[in-house]
């Protein structure tokens, strides 16, 4: 269900916790599964549950609680822009407006070519770098002026 590479990563995470506490690795296991699959289907979550000896419902609880898990099909690039107050004071809403205009989509929408999904984010702990955004949960982009946004979209479109 998951690739050998993903399983290897999950096995590494499991070494961090006591042998009788495999459930502690569920957050990273779901993140690793999502990296491979793009989003978490029920089948993927069930697989993770079985792999970690957890009830499926306990895995669903975690997947639905933490906001960075994708529970629906999503664009190739998920762009999450923080719009919380400190970022809003430094241009976050202008950055969002620019994305809306360039991509023709709003929050929680995906471009028709399936390339980009736009998300509103909460505090990423990088307020000094506003406007701040994340690409696919992992790549943080700082000081995102309209020019830098154009450049980012161009690079990702290649």
């Amino acid at each position: 269900m998951l690739s050998a590479e993903s399983l290897k990563k999950i096995d590494y995470e499991l070494t961090k916790y006591p042998a009788d506490q495999k459930q502690s690795a569920v957050m990273s296991a779901l993140a690793i599964a999502q990296d491979e699959k793009g989003w978490l289907t029920t089948e993927t979550m069930d697989f993770v549950a079985e792999y970690l000896d957890m009830p499926s419902i306990a895995v669903y609880e975690v997947a639905t609680f933490y906001t960075m898990y994708n529970l629906q099909p999503i664009g190739k690039y998920k762009i999450t822009v923080c719009t919380n107050l400190p970022c809003a004071l430094s241009g976050a809403n202008e950055a969002v407006a620019h994305f809306r205009e360039k991509l023709g989509i709003g929050f929680n929408e995906t471009t028709t070519d399936g390339k980009f999904t736009l998300k509103e984010g909460e505090c990423m702990g990088a307020c000094g770098d506003a406007p701040v955004l994340l690409v696919n949960n992992k790549r943080m982009c700082s000081f995102m002026s309209n020019d830098k946004i154009d450049q980012l979209l161009e690079d990702l479109s290649k």
């Binding site: 961090k16 916790y17 957050m27 993140a31 609680f65 933490y66 906001t67 960075m68 898990y69 909460e122």
Partner: peptide, 10 residues
């Protein structure tokens, strides 16, 4: 010592 990565919950 081990690092644990959160996934988006204030």
């Amino acid at each position: 010592l081990y690092n644990h990565h959160g996934y988006g919950a204030y």
